[in-house]
Design a protein around this nucleic acid. Structure first.
Lengths: 151, 151
DNA sequence: CCTGTCAGTTGTGTGTTACAACTAACCTTG
DNA sequence: CAAGGTTAGTTGTAACACACAACTGACAGG
């Protein structure tokens, strides 16, 4: 019988905790710099996606960022204007682009990654070993169930 | 020797995981409804703060939401217009308000909480017992260290 | 009083997004 | 091989949430 009670309490706790994370990370403000670099949050995610998995079409990128194609069109245009990526047409299918980071784009991403890295190491160092282990086990599970119920 | 290597790898993993959560939760889109109710994310947080800890001045609320006072001014004005809160002047200090939810405001917050609750129960049910335990141990630790380094 | 500080408001500008209507490339089918 | 549908991307438009700066009114100490 206690099972539902426990689930219920855990759900409430999870709600509180995720709200705390959002607030503590300052995700309400439109932080127009990420890790000290003059890019928006979406732009930072885009750089990450393109550095990991290249080339991508704008449609692919839109799907990964869960943004509308028109938003991604302007996002990519802006990143291109800043010299962080190039938009070559795919020779096999002239409709779509093959988005690719420039050297400068990769450099910016690397610098951001380093900054984040230091931040995370700082955090990780302030946790106990078992807290780290718990987080690294719990978060993937969370991501998994969020994705599952996304459909 | 291995210690820094492990920390480093764990930091990178944490970075990936938090990016996943942000993306999976759709935090890039300006979700203009929360839990099916026509309020913004900031408004939802405001309702929560005011329901838990009342009365609050706008300055207090701004601090908790990490928003600028002018943003909170308009936020509160909008919530008042919708009949979700009242702004009484503090009799002891006529400069500041005492923000207080109306019955309707509390009702809306309760309905949102219920909707979230069902969502979270759904998620929690899709995790194993040990995953839940890990998350409930790891997340508070994460919030703690984020707050610490926020100073 | 007069001056400084504090809470809140208003004017203004910026940035990020969605939606809808469009163009151009491709593909299918009769 | 031409007609019509589909797909990738673009552009126009509007909504919205936020910050910053300049303001008003209330308070507090000399």
């Amino acid at each position: 019988m206690g099972a539902r009670q426990v689930d219920s309490a855990e759900a409430a706790r999870l709600h509180e905790l995720l709200m705390e994370v959002v607030r503590a990370a300052g995700l309400l403000q439109p932080d127009h710099t990420v890790a000290g670099h003059p890019v928006s949050l979406s732009q930072a995610f885009a750089l990450h996606e393109l550095d990991i998995d290249t080339p991508l079409s704008q449609r692919d990128l839109a799907e990964r960022l869960r943004l509308e194609k028109s938003s991604v069109s302007r996002l990519a245009a802006e990143l291109e204007r800043q010299g962080l990526l190039v938009r070559e047409r795919d020779p096999d299918n002239h409709r779509q682009y093959r988005l690719r980071l420039t050297d400068q784009g990769r450099a910016i991403h690397a610098r951001m990654a380093t900054t984040f890295h230091q931040q995370y190491e700082c955090w990780v160092a302030a946790m106990t070993h078992s807290e780290r282990a718990a987080l690294l086990k719990g978060l993937p599970a969370l991501v998994r169930v969020i994705r599952q119920h996304l459909h």
